[in-house]
């Protein structure tokens, strides 16, 4: 049976990127946040989330954070394929440039959903109960989908533009740090924060992914979530366009 090219590329991406190192980064790091931050801040945080417990507040945040990790893996795929010759090799095979890009994007989305699901299971084991309704599940799915594509696009732009290993890794770590901690993943946006930080929270797409996933998780979906999703989708489309453009213009290898 002949499988579509896109599925073959996704199979290859998953096969190549499910080594221990990638899995530790993809699942282990967020899981550690969940456990260490979840229990560590439990004693000093109260009044956030259902049951006045920090873990139910943190869980949807970490689920949202998985979209950043998925995007990182997506960007790394392109970077490694350019660096180690596989992009050129695949493009002299039966694949088009666009199929290759879509293959990476679809893989990033799958990693985003898989990571979020694992965090959900982890939360169930830690909290003992997780209850998500149909509407909640739906908005979570849309937010994870848009978030994975957004961060996948962002990382693809980086990997198309940066040629040095050090530069790519440094910029990636910096982005992950800023995006992660200047968002509502770990704490709510407080009016007591300095204005500059509030602005950073407001322009950070992860804030909206985290907000929507949190509302879906806690059964508090409201009209405001629709606006947040709309904004997220709009920004995602812009970055997807930029990713396609920079990728199409970039060389197939660094040599």
């Amino acid at each position: 049976m002949a499988y579509p090219n896109l599925l073959k590329l996704v199979y290859r991406n998953i096969k190549v990127n499910t080594d221990y190192g990638t899995l530790i980064i993809l699942i282990g790091l967020p899981a550690m946040y969940l456990v260490f931050f979840g229990y560590g801040f439990q004693s000093i945080v109260s009044g956030e989330g259902p049951g006045n417990s920090y873990l139910p507040f943190l869980t949807p945040g970490i689920m949202a954070f998985q979209t950043v990790m998925a995007g990182t893996v997506g960007g790394s795929m392109l970077w490694a394929d350019r660096r180690y010759g596989m992009l050129a090799q695949l493009l002299v095979g039966p694949f088009t440039r666009l199929q290759y890009l879509l293959g990476i994007m679809l893989t990033a989305v799958m990693f985003g959903f898989a990571g979020a699901a694992v965090m959900l299971v982890g939360a169930y084991l830690l909290i003992g109960t997780v209850s998500i309704g149909f509407v909640g599940a739906l908005v979570i799915i849309v937010a994870i989908l848009a978030g994975s594509i957004f961060f996948g696009s962002l990382m693809l732009v980086l990997s198309a533009l940066l040629k040095s290993n050090n530069a790519y890794n440094s910029v990636q770590v910096l982005i992950i740090f800023v995006v992660n901690f200047a968002s509502t993943v770990f704490y709510p946006l407080s009016p007591k924060l300095p204005v500059a930080l509030q602005v950073l929270f407001d322009i950070n797409p992860l804030t909206y992914v985290a907000n929507v996933v949190r509302d879906g998780y806690s059964g508090a979906v409201a009209v405001g979530d629709a606006y947040q999703i709309a904004g997220l989708v709009a920004v995602t489309l812009v970055f997807l366009f930029l990713a396609v453009r920079s990728y199409m213009r970039s060389g197939v290898s660094f040599s």
């Binding site: 010759g85 695949l90 039966p94």
Partner: peptide, 27 residues
Amino acid sequence: IGVVQQDESFDFTTVQGNFDIYGVLWN
């Protein structure tokens, strides 16, 4: 067509894994 490029090009997996993935990619 088949192309053996001047630069090396491998997936981050074993020799056998590289053969298997290539087989899948080429249907």
